[in-house]
Write a protein that binds this DNA or RNA. Sequence first.
RNA 1: GGCGGGGUCGCCAAGUGGUAAGGCCGAGGUCUGCAAAACCUCUACCGCGGGUUCGAUUCCCGCCCCCGCCUCCA
Length: 467
Amino acid sequence: MSVRLLNTASRSLENFTPLDPAGRVVKMYTCGPTVYNYAHIGNFRAYIFEDLLQRHLEVRGYAVERVMNLTDVDDKTIAGCKRCGVPLADFTQTFKDAFFEDIKTLRIRPATHYPAATAPEYIERMIDMIKTLQAKEIAYLAEDGSVYFRIAKFPRYGELAHLNLEELRPSGRIQSDEYEKEAVGDFALWKAWNPNDGDVWWESPWGRGRPGWHIECSAMATALLGPELDIHCGGVDNIFPHHEAEIAQSECVTGRHFARTWLHCAHLMVDGQKMSKSLGNFYTLRDLLAKGYSGREIRYVLLSVHYRLPLNFTLSGLDAARAALERLDAWVERLQTLAGETLASKEHPPTPACTRFLEALDDDLNISGALGHLFDWIRESNRAMDAGSVTALLAAQTLADFARIQSVLELGAETAAVPAQVLALVEQRQAARAARDWAGSDVLRDAIAAAGWQVKDTKQGPQLTRV
RNA sequence: GGCGGGGUCGCCAAGUGGUAAGGCCGAGGUCUGCAAAACCUCUACCGCGGGUUCGAUUCCCGCCCCCGCCUCCA
């Protein structure tokens, strides 16, 4: 069974096949962060969805070449660097560094390329693309020195979002300062410098200015992945106008079909409401780490809801994630103890549970269904271990299959070395228990807990867990 | 007004034309020196009203409610 994905362009479930004649390489473009602040968990919801997609494609044998852009020039980054009184590049570097730290914390597999909008080669490419569009009379220079895309020249504009442009109701968000446009829907390819931009500008055939947002993605995607992409992802809010604009620009320049599969994840809500600073429910990753939650707990929460469903993020959801992960960890520990040094044979047939897990993900990344299979498997396996019917070999094979699942989930426990002092306490406690000195044993258990470890007495002996 | 996503157990959330996975929390139990873990048992008339059908949570129609987009927000 192949991987099936719901393509925003067709609004239907499609069997996924890459363009690569060998059917192996997948070219994937994912809209990345605007580096004007620390990214919030809503941003990471999108990045974790893309991570899940990439990892699942990889487990299915594809080689994913992925690009994630860094938008390091726009109104917000310019406003930010002015506020701080530092050069734009210094301002954005802080948040680029933070972004890379954060994705590491969340165990997001790095993309192949992270092109930045301000890199000279991409600025140059954007200018070239705009020149091409201008030569085709698709782009026009306005009186203020900005260059706009004439959407009347691209009849398919609006198709991805299923919008009929004639029926659009004007919303308050239309920029009132763009008087120069021929049509209200035309979007900026190149923005002329204005005094607010300070020393942020690049020379161009149209004078000083900076690129528009949309052209950035078109330029970097086609530069790094070629004119046709297999998959293009982003949040639902990017469908219109951003992705429409990308399609229009790219296709008018290359003459090729830009992206074959469009995937969009739904928004994240907090406590049932839109996350916003004024409601006080706005979380960056760092806010949650400061509350004592770990990257993998946050990863679990963001991962465990299907990407096209709105995700309602709550602190109690994080607590539930913690409990679920502890259950998972305890199971793995048990298996490891049983397996000891035994290795799984390379030829063993996969456990049906592992197969079911991956098949659920084949179905448009049905993560909830997949996790359901995983927890069914955990219960059955625990039951078998309780009954004493699991051999070292079976435990080893179970672990080998689970490793396959973990290559997609990446939810393994952090391993921490047990300090010698704690080990000594555990030994003393074992001696006390052997002597049936229960009071002494309990005092030692408290001492171990005070050192940050929990000791559990199992049939195989005491087991330590980091608290 | 247009386009789109939702309403399934206290919370999160799968799923199917034949009376509903899983996780968390809760109650009781087995095991254990006591714990912990694990396991077992228990907890849902699937937003409302019609229709199609032998039978609908699942298909169709209407309605209510929530959320998003509608020109630079993941």
